[in-house]
Nucleic acid binder design. Sequence first.
RNA 1: GGUGGGUUGGCCGAGAGGCGAGGCAACGGACUGCAAAUCCGUCUACACGGGUUCAAAUCCCGUACCCACCUCCA
Length: 469
Amino acid sequence: MTLRLYDTATGEVRDFVPLQTGKAGVYVCGLTVQGEPHVGHVRSAVNFDVLRRWLIASGYEVTFIRNITDIDDKILTKSADQGRPWYNLAYDMKRELDKAYDALHVLPPTYEPAATGHVPEMIELINLLIERGHAYAAEDGSGDVYFDVRSWAAYGELTHQGIDDMEAATDADPRGKRDPRDFALWKGWKQDSEPVTASWPAPWGRGRPGWHIECSAMAGKYLGDAFDIHGGGVDLRFPHHENEQAQSRAAGGRFASYWMHNAWITTAGEKMSKSLGNTLSIPGVLQRVRGIELRYYMVSAHYRSHVEFSFEALEEAASAFRRIERFLEKVPEVIVGELPAAFSAALDDDLGTPAAIAAIHDAVRQGNVHVAADESEAAAAVAGSVIAMLSVLGLDPADPHWSQGSASDSGELKGVVDVLIAGLIEQRQAARANKDFAAADAIRDQIAAAGVEIEDTPQGARWKLTGQN
RNA sequence: GGUGGGUUGGCCGAGAGGCGAGGCAACGGACUGCAAAUCCGUCUACACGGGUUCAAAUCCCGUACCCACCUCCA
């Protein structure tokens, strides 16, 4: 079975055929670093991280580029409001973003280019577009350069829209534009309101790049004129992706073969938006559940399905995930095994993570049956495949990544706690042997109150931290 | 106005013409001193109205409601 992906450009699920056999080039629009990352941002990152891991697991050599937009209108206005340099705000938020990605075990991309580091490439691309007659410098002296939408007949092809059916950008400053739908490739420096540090020299005067041109320039630099997959959130289809494609193709490239867009995660029926102020920051959410549980929650819905975020659903997902963990804890010394066919088929079908997770749960139930029957070899084999599946989704609880931070402290403490609890468990066993159940239960309650759970098994009592104290 | 998507059982959430995805919760049973964990079972759903078909949650027509994009946004 081969990988099939939904391509926004064609509106259908089709076979993934890479440009080069065995290789996959992926470009994903990262963030504009102007505020704290929220669960919506991270959903996109997690979705494409799953894509990447599945491509790797399928044998592809993956080049994964995710950019950072570190200069734009919002960054300039926000930093001005906060009374600090724009680059400081962008850098701070970039670091927050890195923390959020790390908390969800989103793998670092092959490279993460920043817009400000690629101005020469953008200027070069804009020049090429001007030469080819698809862009023009505004004649009003503003220093702006616009893409000439009417010069590119295919404009609108990605989102299946005709230019004349589109509403013209009402708030756009029409000065110097040939068509209201023309968009800025270069924004001339506004000396009265913008710091000189936010401008770069260019043939058309000092200024800064427009939003869309960065992705075209950076994707071209790191992936070439033609590459396999371009991803981002649904909101980016238009105008951002449409414009990217128009620019890059007008400049002579082929650009992306497949376009993938992840759906929104909303709160209380509304999209999470910096401007609405209803964002759920990652650190905030991580006070309620662990990062691995949040990741499980995100992966349990299909990437093209809209998710209505709720803490109830999140807790529910966390419960489901703990069931998987409990099974794995019962099976020591597991060797990573094979992926079940149902799991691979699910992911091959446009990253069907919900069905993939169902395959995990099926295996867990089967594994629990083996554990109950004391069939340790069979149980270990099942656990091996469960671990293999979880790894592909970035959800292996045994991955050292998840225990970073708290591990050093708890590692030392664990030995001590182990001895203390073992003593208590022995006392409880003695009480049970004497049929003094009141005493036995008192001990169990006492440890439970401290956040330690006892599980009675035929081989004796086991204990673990519940994380609820 | 244009474009794209949605409405599934108590809840979350898949599927896309014929075999009850999966999970959470609840209830019953097994196990247990009692629990917990685990297993078995129960809860037989697809917005509404028509139609096509031997067969429709799935296809077609219509209706209602919801959402996204067309303006910065994952």
